[in-house]
Design a protein around this nucleic acid. Structure first.
Lengths: 354, 354
DNA sequence: CATTAGCACTCTTGTTGTTCAAGTGCTAAA
DNA sequence: TTTAGCACTTGAACAACAAGAGTGCTAATG
């Protein structure tokens, strides 16, 4: 019986088990009897706790890695914890919003091709592959719609560069449908054809004036617009095959590996490297070690090539790896992949023309 | 002057430098004078090589990690190697084919949503996120086109489940355009509405008979068709945020990390785990440690939830991490993400209905 | 009878010292 | 100019050892 299972443990044992699992989840270290005495819910001495822990161990809920370490939960311990001791957790608003927004996002044609190209580049070269779409200047919204979902939330729909972008909005107060309409009108009146930096304070104040009682809506919406614009033209960076790093003894070193992953996580530096260089677009670029100017890449080589469409550079694709890299294979591969992506884009163009 | 640079080194120095770089690229170890004497192009003793190496080092092309190790190329050494000593490498046919095929691939609606959902799941939970589309039975091609590109290559275009799939084909002999046409006709005659397992040997032989002199074309094309079908319905598995593993001391162990990455690489096992379980689709599933049956995951926890569309399970999304996992947060997050994806799919349905 | 204090015991971790193998630099001879 | 030989340097691997942390057990206490 399930309820049998639940009541197998005394309340104090449950408390101690829960405390141990919680502490272990938080720290990762085995937890000893002394540590638990600090827990306010547990009001007995370390010796008592030790006795209880010994019993929990013999029941199979705890184990000790070695004699002189603390206890860690066994799998059965985790199972009991998950089934009976778990608190409920509710996502924060910020988390929910992030979730909703990301599910709205649509990939562009180029993004989709880059994704495939990256996967094949990583596979063929056996190095971590990276692609970027550089910043596009002067991206603007050509039309706004505002869709009211309920009293507290709406969807901002923008036509930007021929593509529909949506942004989920939420307020703490009730927004009437009149307010929604008014805001949409104001946006189409004032904010069409503007780049992110065109949204100046005077402009925002003028919009607020026109909104009357609903002036407080303007600034968060403008923020959302600017975020969308910057996310759209703020060059996107994709990475594939981080695990390839592990294949090389150069990165078989956790400190180094972690630094590299931090670099991938942050993306800014890489974006700059790929975008900023005065590249000859028709050639594969090779940057070795300190030529990369970013400290973390002191011992790494970056090999990439620009992707062109209609004669213009629209991105770049390449790999990153140890300076000890199989240059001749990688250079040839990246050359071909970049050309392939460019060709795929061109063929799309011609399809559109017909 | 560039040519100056090229001739800064004597031919023997170039030979030795190239040999050192090649050897170091291959092994990763510092290379000593003795090893180089085995190179057939170098016909002098280790002592001579040592002298040359000492000179190359003083010129800045080599360095030694410590006195008693061999030499490794410096950045300048790599630079010289890349600029002047590199052999040309041509991609193999297999590599070129793989490249072309992967650039043709189109993502489905579900794939695109899953991609976004994965990214946000990995970010919110801070664990590695995984999604699967399970096998779809009975997927068939409803129409074939064959586009001749040149004497040796064609594009096989298939309409499968309402989606266009293409496959790049190449032969060693010249294929006339008549042959291409005949093949396309035969395919549409015999091979429409068949699943991969419907392609039996007798059928293939019958098709070959109708192809006359071009019978040798049938079997490779059928292979390509079957590959496409299996790739289409063979459940797809995506992974995001492998680097998150590094955040946890449990994986701060290169052996463990590598095993996990191998698991991600192979995908088969994971696919089975996600797909095979008799899940209650409305609940978040938690598998702890050995409950996972796959050896590598002995110390890991898998948390996932099914994604439904129109009442049917169309996939699953979840995370994998150490058994010491922040269960309450992860369970809540996965619950929300999976629901979000399901909802996004449903809303697409209703759009289509209108 | 449950709880607690105290102490001896166990086991890991980090440090130190030593040996071993690898590869160099230099000198003298060919 | 090239080669052989030898002394020297240095990191990696391994064993010995001290320190620290946490337990289990026993005896005392409310």
């Amino acid at each position: 019986m399930i309820s049998d299972n639940k009541n197998k443990l005394s309340d104090r044992k449950k408390l101690i088990l829960k405390a141990i699992v919680d502490a272990h989840i938080a720290n990762g270290d085995p937890v000893g009897s002394k540590l638990l005495t600090r827990n306010e819910l547990i009001s007995c001495s370390s010796a008592t706790i030790r006795n209880e822990m010994a019993e929990l161990e013999s029941m199979g809920y705890l184990e000790q890695p070695h004699t002189s370490a603390g206890r860690i939960p066994s799998e059965a311990g985790y199972r009991f914890y998950v089934d009976w001791l778990l608190d409920r957790y509710n996502l924060t608003r910020a988390e929910i919003d992030e979730l909703k927004n990301s599910l709205q996002k649509k990939q562009s044609e180029l993004d989709s091709i880059l994704q495939s190209a990256l996967a094949v580049a990583a596979k063929l070269t056996n190095y971590t592959a990276i692609s970027v779409r550089p910043k596009i200047e002067k991206i603007t919204v050509s039309r706004y719609e505002l869709m009211r979902l309920d009293d507290y939330s709406s969807m901002l729909i923008m036509l930007v560069g021929g593509v529909v972008k949506t942004k989920y909005l939420r307020s703490n107060t009730v927004i009437s449908s009149e307010a929604t309409h008014a805001l949409a009108m104001i946006l189409n009146m004032y904010a069409v054809g503007l780049t992110a930096s065109d949204f100046t304070m005077p402009l925002i104040m003028e919009m607020e004036q026109h909104m009357g009682n609903y002036d407080f809506l303007v600034s968060p919406v403008v923020k959302a617009i600017c975020m969308t614009l910057s996310e759209f033209d703020g060059g996107d960076l994709k990475i594939e095959g981080v695990n390839k790093l592990l294949s090389y003894p150069e990165f078989y070193n956790l400190e180094r590996l972690r630094e590299m992953l931090m670099l991938f996580e942050k993306k800014d530096d890489l974006l700059e490297i790929f975008s900023g260089k005065p590249t000859e677009p028709e050639k594969v670029q090779v940057y070795i070690g300190k030529e990369n100017l970013v400290k973390v890449m002191d011992n790494s080589t970056l090999i990439f090539k620009a992707i062109t469409n209609d004669g213009k550079t629209v991105g770049a694709i390449g790999v990153i790896g140890p300076t000890r890299m199989d240059y001749k294979r990688v250079i040839a591969t990246i050359d071909n992949v970049a050309n392939g992506v460019s060709a795929a884009l061109e063929s799309n163009n011609s399809k559109k023309d017909i």
